[in-house]
């Protein structure tokens, strides 16, 4: 199993690149916008972005559970959601939002040397209640419909307990990514297809970094997650 670290503090600035003014190819062709609207939630669903709120786990000894999803597209997304724990009494689940790069663009998968890419609508697409143990997400990249692909992700480990005694919060998850590609996809990605990716994601915050985080998150969230992630972090930092 290969491990790598994705410190969120480094991840967030990278995420903000396109959201904060990075350029994108123009035209109604590849890379434009999603092809298909996501299923519309009922009006009474929590407001958009609410699912990204991260609540502080209740009693001590609680763990974070990270359910991760992985979608192949120019942008790959880990879904974050706060969920009360269902496996063990007194546990809470926190699913954190992480992003992964396009496997085809990622020349160095397995290291923390990714160049992150971000597309706002994707975040919305993935904000929904996720399965408790295993998440399977199928996704048709809007720009390359001919190479529809399915990728699977499994969150394998319950992550470390939150320690609120210190001002440091550490999230870790051990995950396995499994890629399922159609024949046409395989043909197109041969050569640098990453195959299964294994990893340990880790994020570390300290109170001293809050200011920076806020700036970055606000930037990322423009019209996208509406600073809900920021609120979640702020809540944890309380």
């Amino acid at each position: 199993m290969r491990f790598f670290y994705l410190p969120l503090i480094f991840l967030l600035p990278a995420l903000s690149v396109t959201a904060c003014g990075g350029s994108r190819q123009a035209g109604l062709d590849p890379g434009q916008a999603r092809m298909v609207d996501e299923y519309t939630p009922p009006f009474l669903a929590p407001p958009a972005g609410e699912a990204l709120k991260i609540t502080v786990p209740r009693p001590a000894g609680e763990a974070l559970r990270l359910l991760s999803g992985y979608a192949d597209s120019p942008q790959a997304v880990y879904v974050a959601e706060s969920r009360p724990g269902s496996q063990e009494p007194g546990r809470s689940s926190v699913v954190f939002l992480l992003f992964l790069p396009d496997p085809e663009q990622c020349l160095d998968c397995g290291n923390n040397n990714f160049s992150y890419y971000y597309e706002n609508d994707l975040v919305k697409q993935w904000i929904y209640p996720v399965a408790r143990r295993e998440v399977r997400m199928e996704f048709a990249p809007d720009d390359v419909l001919s190479r529809y692909m399915t990728l699977t992700a499994r969150a394998e480990a319950v992550v470390l307990p939150l320690t609120r005694e210190s001002s440091e919060i550490r999230l870790e998850v051990d995950y396995t990514l499994e890629r399922r590609a159609s024949a046409s996809t395989r043909r197109q990605t041969e050569g640098n297809a990453p195959g299964p990716v294994f990893g340990l994601a880790s994020a570390r915050f300290s109170s001293g970094q809050t200011g920076d985080l806020q700036d970055e998150v606000q930037c990322v969230s423009k019209g996208v997650v509406e600073a809900e992630l920021l609120k979640g972090i702020a809540e944890i930092m309380k």
């Binding site: 092809m35 298909v36 609207d37 996501e38 299923y39 519309t40 199928e138 996704f139 048709a140 529809y148």
Partner: peptide, 11 residues
């Protein structure tokens, strides 16, 4: 509309 999406995505 959702049926369309489901068939489109094969869900």
């Amino acid at each position: 509309n959702s049926l369309g999406i489901a068939y489109y995505k094969g869900e």
